[in-house]
Design a protein around this nucleic acid. Sequence first.
DNA 1: AATGAATGAGATTTCATTCAT
DNA 2: AATGAATGAAATCTCATTCAT
Lengths: 216, 216, 216, 216
Amino acid sequence: MKKQQIQASVKDERLVEKRRDEMIKGAVSLFKKKGFHRTTTREIARESGFSIGTLYEYIRKKEDILYLVCDSIYDRVHTKFEQHKMDLEHGTLEGLKQGIRNYFRVVDELQDEFLVMYQESKSLTKETLPYVLQKEKEMALLLEKMLTRCVENGELFLSKEQVQLLSHNIVVLGQMWGFRRWVIQKMFTLDEYIDMQIDFLFNGILRNKNSENLEN
Amino acid sequence: MKKQQIQASVKDERLVEKRRDEMIKGAVSLFKKKGFHRTTTREIARESGFSIGTLYEYIRKKEDILYLVCDSIYDRVHTKFEQHKMDLEHGTLEGLKQGIRNYFRVVDELQDEFLVMYQESKSLTKETLPYVLQKEKEMALLLEKMLTRCVENGELFLSKEQVQLLSHNIVVLGQMWGFRRWVIQKMFTLDEYIDMQIDFLFNGILRNKNSENLEN
Amino acid sequence: MKKQQIQASVKDERLVEKRRDEMIKGAVSLFKKKGFHRTTTREIARESGFSIGTLYEYIRKKEDILYLVCDSIYDRVHTKFEQHKMDLEHGTLEGLKQGIRNYFRVVDELQDEFLVMYQESKSLTKETLPYVLQKEKEMALLLEKMLTRCVENGELFLSKEQVQLLSHNIVVLGQMWGFRRWVIQKMFTLDEYIDMQIDFLFNGILRNKNSENLEN
Amino acid sequence: MKKQQIQASVKDERLVEKRRDEMIKGAVSLFKKKGFHRTTTREIARESGFSIGTLYEYIRKKEDILYLVCDSIYDRVHTKFEQHKMDLEHGTLEGLKQGIRNYFRVVDELQDEFLVMYQESKSLTKETLPYVLQKEKEMALLLEKMLTRCVENGELFLSKEQVQLLSHNIVVLGQMWGFRRWVIQKMFTLDEYIDMQIDFLFNGILRNKNSENLEN
DNA sequence: AATGAATGAGATTTCATTCAT
DNA sequence: AATGAATGAAATCTCATTCAT
């Protein structure tokens, strides 16, 4: 799955990157408010600080902007993961918890961006959509790796299928924090949310019967 | 939160209902493929089997169609729940499992509709959106009731907050079956998916260590 | 110039007349508020107390309604003139004044109708417009006759051209009462207006120097 | 009463003025033939020499065009008055006559525009209509001033009310030249018309008995 | 004779994209 | 490299008119 190259008329690559960053910032802020379809290219140009003509020096179609936005979000997710130095190595339960915790924090920081990406990515065409879906899979893969390491280390007893499903579960429960913010974020702080979710993940609801003494 | 009344020019109420049903069916099938914004009113009219003029005898604005679609989906969800006779009464673990199982099956049956609703409902205006969000909350409430019954019966030991969070978790894990279908449904059958999710929910991942003998 | 016959599908002539009267009444009241173009046939039907289908049993095109309205207004003008028993016979100055007075009162009574007619008659087609313009001319002709009688009687010394122009002047000064109502009717009562206009007509502005003793 | 500002997307103000002038010219010529409602925006665009898209770069709603047309007509009227150097200063009868004469000539030159304005201005919305009506009043005010000057100078003996009414009379008798052109302009040349009207205004119909020797 | 559901031509308006400057 | 005026395809929505019942 190759990264889609968006053609620019401008040659100076450094300039291209700079302008596109401005564009993405402007676009995300508008998409958040009005969604991709309700946002016009003129608005994006104005919000980004240049003219409609200039905008089209750096992209070819409006959809390119959406692709750039989605792509940039994934980049930022990966960067954040790096910053949080997700401990993929140790394969301990504590490391796993820390990894999940970090993932939840990343989702919190980028919740607007995630919202935009999930609500609008269906507007991508056949050419760019697969690349974005691929990125989506990779996110689950990061968690899958951590889980697998724990299984290999004998810290967890899970089948390959269970690991795969679980990794998607965690991804989705993370996104839930952002997507259902209008109800969830009124009930819990981020830390409360994380603690409760990790408790549920590790112990389930039956085990809760006598899990008061479990660390979480 | 009152149900929004969509005005029709046609007087015959039975006819209005019939035509709107045709419209909703046509619209869902198109929204699935192209989303709300990419679908034109003319396409909806054609797909529904009548002319653009007739379409506008039964609605006033394009957005009305989206509202009708969302509303109809919730109606169908409720109806399906009824059909599956969700056992809210007993408050047993077995009843709870059955309830969750049923919910997952409903999501499976209506997965296209859910997808449309979640991706497009943000296109609703201030007047209609709250009604749809309310419906969304009610869905979680159904599950919350079942869980609460079990807690009251002493079958589960969960705080009020845990029950609330859990109900949202279940809602979201159900939707995940439809939303991530391009990866999840390639890995599991619906029954496998349900069994595994219920296992995770009840026992968590630690308990899995020695949960081979647990029925699920 | 023949009266245009508007075709009706319904045979019963008495019924046709009755329905058309209802139609005209409804239409005038709507045209007053919104003008011909902004008024829909559905609205006219509803205002007239029958269905759109029925409306079209009595006319063939929307424009027919406008024609019927214009025609009816002229009929009413003539009837009013009759009621006021315009004294065309005597050919005295006093009779002339009375005739003008009466005309002004008719304009006052039918000012809404006149307004509609003048603002909308240009929407008539080539076939019906000439008939309406003809009616317009006839109105001036009524006044022309009165003036001519006075000239013949030696009460006035006016050339044929002067009589013709004067008759149009009077027609227009009458309409002015209705057309500029938003300013004129705030300044004068109808009687004041009539008195002043007759004074001006008869004596002009120079004569006013020493016309205080003139009856008007 | 503030001049309504019509928003344009194009920034270059000189260009906006130029294009709008083209638009107004095109629109007036079409409104004359078909009226505001029967004229489509596409026709206006074509007649003005640019595309429909370009048209909407210079206005926002079709009604804006009507407003621009009305506004431009008043501007031209004022300009014409200036060109004719209406003699407001002297306050002589001769100056008054010259003023009236000039007004009649302006009406003649702009008769198409006046016709459009009077027939269509009711299609303006609540926001723009008052401004246009105000302009209408101002026209009468110009004549009122001239008359008042003569009264102050002792050249005329008229009450304040008489002056006000008279100014409206003159405005209306001017418009009559354009509005009843289909009959009046067949009977008289403009100069004949002016002479006769001034005679009537100054001397009335009674005074005509022995006014042959009066200059007019 | 009365009804009102159905129709579709046509109107206004938007907006992605181009291209001359 | 930057600008923004110009374009026109396409979208939504209206409404006069018809016709089966």
